[in-house]
Amino acid sequence: MIRSEILKEIAPILNPHLVVCNIGLPSQELHMIDDNERNFYMLGTMGLSSSIGFGLALAQDKPVISIDGDGSVLTNLGTLPTIANNATGNYTLLIIDNGSYGSTGDQPTYAGMKTNLTDVARACGCENVIEVQDKDLGPILQQAIDSDEMTIIVCKCDSGNIKLPVITLDPVVIRHRFMEAVKA
């Protein structure tokens, strides 16, 4: 499966929850599949989906899911020790590991070569790291959200993208409606 197929499948699981979504195609795909005020779309700042979602999870009690990418986690690897050492049960980090920088044309990342992000997350001190194949993600994600333990999911999948328009929502609108959803 490619990322857009995965997002289609898990959209109903994500829908009731606060979601911080990675820059580029992941956000464009989520926006197309199920745009709602509980989605925070990153329009820039590659690498910070996990940090933004984690800060949000620490600041309030609702479940938060960060959708991240292998390339973005590699660019902000320092995030994993921070998350590990300040774990909060309402946080789930979903790394869609397609082994490539998808949004920029599927150039290979080191996660698709010798580097194993599941092992990296564990070595950083994350206690609950699950590696899962794309087709099996749904139930694992649901369990992670429902459980009181913080979970890092590394979802292995194929590279590949669909053609999509960019998001034209104003960032302040995205942020405002998201904050209203946080408070609701």
Partner: peptide, 20 residues
């Protein structure tokens, strides 16, 4: 919350702000 790099820290701060 100590961060490992300042851009990471600014991401945490953005999330915390949206969390109230």
């Amino acid at each position: 919350i100590p961060s490992n790099k300042e851009d990471e820290g600014m991401g945490l701060c953005a999330g915390a702000f949206m969390g109230g």
